[in-house]
C-alpha cells in the first residue's frame, strides 16, 4: 500500500521527465537531418533496406515528423498522439537497426550526426537506447489519459 502511494506521488514527475527527454531527443535528432537531407538520404540508402523510390520521400518527411512530435510533446499538444508517433518511429528504428546488426551489415545510423565511421558496438548501444526510450514511451501512454 505504501509503495503504491509512493509510485503515485512520483508518477507525475517521471512523466514530466519522460516528456522532456523524448521531446528534446526527437527535436535534436531531427535538426541535422533537416539541415542536410541529402546526407540523410545517403544514410537511408546505406541501410540497404528501403526501396530506391522511397528514400528521398523518407529523407524529406521523417525528420519533420520527429520535429513536430517532439515539439508537440513538450508543448502538451496531443501529447499521447505525439508519444504514439515517437513509439512508432522508435519501433521502426529498432527493427531496422536490429535487422542490420543481425545480418552483419555495417552502416551509419545517422541518428544524431552523420559520422564516417561505422561501428557495430555503437549501433548496439543505439539499439539499447531506443529500447529504453520505447519503454519510457509505453510507460507514458499507460499513465496518461487523453484530456
Amino acid at each position: 500500500m505504501k509503495s503504491r502511494k509512493m509510485k503515485n506521488n512520483y508518477t507525475p514527475v517521471l512523466l514530466f521527465i519522460i516528456k522532456l527527454m523524448l521531446g528534446i531527443t526527437f527535436i535534436y535528432a531531427s535538426y541535422h537531418k533537416i539541415a542536410d537531407p541529402a546526407g540523410f538520404a545517403k544514410i537511408l540508402y546505406g541501410y540497404e533496406i528501403f526501396p530506391g523510390s522511397s528514400i528521398n520521400i523518407l529523407a524529406i518527411t521523417v525528420p519533420f515528423v520527429e520535429l513536430v512530435a517532439g515539439f508537440s510533446l513538450i508543448l502538451g499538444l496531443f501529447p499521447r498522439s505525439a508519444v504514439l508517433i515517437i513509439n512508432a518511429l522508435l519501433s521502426g528504428f529498432i527493427l531496422i537497426i536490429g535487422f542490420n546488426l543481425l545480418r552483419g551489415h555495417q552502416f551509419d545510423c545517422g541518428c544524431f550526426v552523420f559520422s564516417s565511421e561505422n561501428q557495430t558496438a555503437s549501433n548496439i548501444y543505439l539499439l539499447i537506447r531506443d529500447f529504453l526510450m520505447l519503454a519510457s514511451g509505453i510507460y507514458f501512454l499507460r499513465n496518461t489519459t487523453a484530456s
Partner: peptide
C-alpha cells in the same frame, strides 16, 4: 480516448508533411 489519439496523430502527421514538403 482512442479517437482523440488518432485525431492527434492525423493532425500532427499532416502538419509535419506540409512543413516537410514546403521546407524542402
Amino acid at each position: 480516448m482512442i479517437q482523440k489519439d488518432l485525431k492527434g496523430i492525423f493532425l500532427l502527421v499532416f502538419f509535419a508533411l506540409i512543413a516537410a514538403f514546403s521546407y524542402n
